[in-house]
Amino acid sequence: MEAVSINSLSKSFNKGAIQALDAVSFSVQEGELFGLIGPDGAGKTTLFRILTTLLLPDSGEATVYGWDIRTDYQKIRREVGYMPGKFSLYQDLTVEENLSFFASVFGQKLTDNYALIQDIYEQIAPFKDRRAGKLSGGMKQKLALCCALIHRPKLLFLDEPTTGVDAVSRKEFWEMLKKLKAQGMSILVSTPYMDEANLCERIALIQNGKILSIDSPQGIIKQYPTPLYAVKAKNMISLLATLRQQEQLASCYAFGEYHHISFKSQDAQQLQQLQQTLEAAGHQEISMLAIEPSIEDCFIELMH
């Protein structure tokens, strides 16, 4: 059975001035960990709000576990857990009070499904009497995840759960998602962090309300159209400036320790020629190597 099925879903705001979703279609299988990868404003939150029945689409269909989002909203709300990107916690309630509150909304006690959240909750339990408003980034996100899980949903919707979360906590967060998946939960998660895409079974790259591509992370990487190279030199800022002047390059942009480049046409001599050009421009300690694209490279390519 499909956990989520979406067919040509559209939604606009401000009398059509903003097209938040433009004929979006895809499905999430039961037990799948599916990622919606795209920047703020891509339409991810609108999609979540429609799937959790908080907002109606202008056109198109969607079902959650076979239930229609327009007519079966009561059933859907009972079976899904939703962690909105922002403002999901009561800032003036403590950690423990927030959790008890969310459990009570579903007619349950904190202890009913404690085993499910234990791993995560133990990390924030030392602060259980602190008000949610006083917590910082990572801790708020962990509490919000506990709140979304407390009624043991079949399907978890997570809207940018790791935005603003540090690199270590992000890794931990994804470990938790893997465990939940292993327990059979279906998960639809959105993120602006491209590196997290690799941890999903399938991903949809989304931008300006449109799906750019849907595939497994490896499948998306395979679609990258040209060879990609990484270039480094002593002065990276001026190297980027020089690279930008090169007509033969199709793209060049900073990428951590290296700049990434691709050529407009493929020819065996071009790397060596570029090396000479860079040397002539006074660059030192130049190194170049062929690399496999990452999801972030694919996204940048698709945005062109």
């Binding site: 920047p39 602006p192 491209m194 931008q207 942009y253 945005m303």
Partner: peptide
């Protein structure tokens, strides 16, 4: 944290 959640192209323009 000026670039949290910003798309990969605009993030580079910010830099």
């Amino acid at each position: 944290e000026p670039t949290g959640g910003v798309d990969p192209v605009t993030r580079r323009q910010f830099w």
